[in-house]
Design a protein around this nucleic acid. Structure first.
Lengths: 124, 124
DNA sequence: CCCCGTAGGTGCACGCTACACCTAGCGTGC
DNA sequence: GCACGCTAGGTGTAGCGTGCACCTACGGGG
């Protein structure tokens, strides 16, 4: 019963993709969680659940990749704002490297897939 | 203790990436598991464990994406050879579409990341 | 006979993910 | 003042893919 089992032909995003996304957004400008939620959605990740996002931010805070500070809001409850640390910047750089690798593998896959289609029904 | 937690700045490949890779390889030509192991490594996935690969093949067999048949080998034990079904081909096509989406998201990320670098230390 | 290489397979624990659900502050309308 | 809704942050938990370790079986050579 163990092993890959899908009822839909969907491929997920890379594992841990939320982290580099959040680091990137925080690097682009200090902001708070609820705002970052929109940011990651805009980055192309559809339907991100807030729970995972806050957990991710918390984890990165504890690991020292970001630093957080509570700031009162003029309207609504206080918000926790995040800023990137030097270590976080290093990680972002490293993760960008890994993502470039993934990007390369996907390009390879696509090439092979297209070539397969050419073989099946060669264009004029 | 739940939530993302990494000790190394590594991003994994997309979830379920083994499936489309195996479907692609089987589509390129009928072969057996032990051979596909080399195939996926050549596709860019480093260090694939045989266990997961066989489980994946078994699952796709049960789902009807591939069909398997035992064939005796001239030297060594018998091998299970796999061939793609029509349904498998549909899935491969659908997965290629999903992977194209992932590829696009990664491109977006990369653009944003590079632009961030330009802002940090603008080139002449 | 034992060992090595080929080929296929199982058990299990870890960790990310997704879904549901909850608390608390603040402003507005009744 | 109170209910309500919006903003903002947070927890609990089950599922499932993944990685690691380990195992069986066949065939050939020393």
């Amino acid at each position: 019963m163990s092993g890959p089992q899908l009822t839909e032909a969907a491929i997920g995003l890379p594992r841990n993709f939320l982290r580099p996304c959040l680091l990137l957004l925080v690097a682009e400008g200090t902001s708070h969680g609820y705002d970052l939620l929109d940011g990651v959605r805009a980055l192309g990740l559809g339907r991100v659940d807030p729970g995972g996002l806050y957990r991710c931010l918390r984890a990165m805070d504890e690991e020292g990749l970001v630093r957080s500070s509570w700031e009162p809001s003029s309207r609504g409850p206080a918000r926790r704002t995040y800023q990137l640390t030097d270590e976080g910047q290093d990680w972002l750089h490293a993760m960008a490297g890994s993502l470039a690798d993934v990007h390369h593998v996907l390009s390879m896959f696509r090439r092979r897939y297209v070539r397969l289609g050419d073989r099946t029904h060669p264009a004029s």
